[in-house]
Design a binder for these strands. Sequence first.
RNA 1: GUGCCCGUAGCUCAAUCGGAUAGAGCACCAGCCUUCUAAGCUGGGGGUUACAGGUUCGAUUCCUGUCGGGCACGCCA
Length: 585
Amino acid sequence: MNSSAHPHFKTHFAELFRAAANAIATPDANVRIELTRTKQASHGDYSCNLAMQLAKPLHKNPREVAGLLIDALPASPYLEKVEIAGAGFINLFLKHSAKQQCVHQVLQSKEMFGHSDSGQGKKIQVEFVSANPTGPLHVGHGRGAAIGASLSSVLTAAGFNVSREFYVNDAGRQMDILTLSTWLRYLELNDIHIPFPQNAYQGDYVKSMARLIHQAHAERYVHHPELVLDGLPVTVLETVVSTDEHLDLLIANAKKVLGQDYAYIHNFVLTEQLGDCRNDLMEFGVEFDTWFSEQSLYDNGSVARTIQLLNDKKYLYEQDGAIWFRSTDFGDEKDRVVQRENGQFTYFASDIAYHLNKFERGYEQVINIWGADHHGYIPRVKGALQALGLDPAKLEIALVQFAVLYRDGKKAPMSTRSGEFVTLRELREEVGKDAARFFYVMRKSDQHLDFDLDLAKSQSNENPVYYVQYAHARVCSVLAQWDGDAADLIEADMAALSSPAELALLQKLIDFPDTVEMAAKEFSPHLIAFYLRELASEFHSYYNSTRFLVPEIALQHARLALIAAIRQVLKNGMTLLGVSAPDKM
RNA sequence: GUGCCCGUAGCUCAAUCGGAUAGAGCACCAGCCUUCUAAGCUGGGGGUUACAGGUUCGAUUCCUGUCGGGCACGCCA
């Protein structure tokens, strides 16, 4: 990347303009040097608005400043010409040779093209998915998984030291409800029929787990129904009334009558669901470096210690028998309970401990990918970090809007508890991993995603991932029919590539590293998806207008080298998104 | 009711911390396969960037208000 033969143009030109700005003795040397790619060919390849920024402090009109800057601009071997345009833009035109050399760079760097060291090895953690292990992942989780995985890959490519983490909520009430649900299903298998609460987990996977326990342990966990229903109103015997109190009583009874066996069932369902989740995600191309247990924060005293720390700093107070954190000191709407009247810590309490733990592990930047419905939770978490003396700016919360499912043109219901949901696994099996991964990151993460199941399942040519993959397969096909060795193309002379389409393609390849950097900086993997579609589009157009296997060897090799480079960049981009790059379609 | 996010072509979405004539895909219309993969390409119509003000050389972008939509407002997780 840093070879003087292959400069990073934006950086290179920024240095030239910095020198020019200093030379004309600007009173404000702190201006940011901005270089942007132009939209129109008549505006050159790169544009700089420095003259307009300096016009005011220099008390001169922008075009005059532009003239001074150009006069002071050090010579560059890559520039064909420099022009003043519009209100004072300075447009840079690259020499053809400067563009052509990027083919060599791509073919030499191979899968590393697009990688940079701009992240400087900074330790950064991305926490995502973190779904309750109480049932199969659904298509909503899928979006967080796809965005988190792609963003992690992008950050890695941009030179960050990335750690992917899944926070396992194994300590809460939801796990108790799943444990109870499984046990009730197990009792049914033993001909003990207790009305199954509506707000318990209804899914078939609960029955499956009950069968596994039944097969392995027969009637070992059977208890008399009267004990199970102890203390519950008589009416529940006939109905499936389902209040939280009802459920909590059942859970309490289960813990009482099962004793040590409760922990066994709890652990069994947790292990089952976590294993299922892990496999599901692995098949989706999503893997984690760390699966972090919430329960461990209780077991090793982290939660109690963290709360004590907040208390020492005078951010806690007691009211109505509960312990509150004064989050309003940090802009939250109201104070929040960290320890309930019954002595139980809240989820918020363990979450504070968790975030403190993240920074204790040395991460310089932490990114949480959350569903947008959690946005109200941000002020209290950031507030807690601030209270603990940490910089809340080091925690970045990326909100992901839920995917809204459409089936037969209507919204599909989504509720884990009721069992009416489309699972991620189902989606993968029907539309394929590639389509699902690409589809999920096709739009900005803070935008709603309308997921048309019928369209996604139809395998029609409307699926955008095929368009990009097809470009890759087409290049493979051409190179397979050429009787040379692709490795030799690195030596090809690119001077023959001078048509507008070819020069535009060369510039597009040059743009790839910038796009990766931008995606990393803005936490926006969708930029990669858009880039790939644009590159594929330009290639398809080029393919239809130009023959590659032409008789003139120099021209043939130059064109083949170009499409080989395009193939490499398409593959690198698709890899970032977890999409495969097939050789044939 | 309060807070946060959003409102761009018929539909789904882009637009590089404020830049030049706001761009793609789908849909619609008209064309292109005896030539390297037609899952492709070429051309066409489509817009007061919800609305009204403000800030400045310049606003889809920033500020205020109105309208419309989403989400959140537990001693749940």
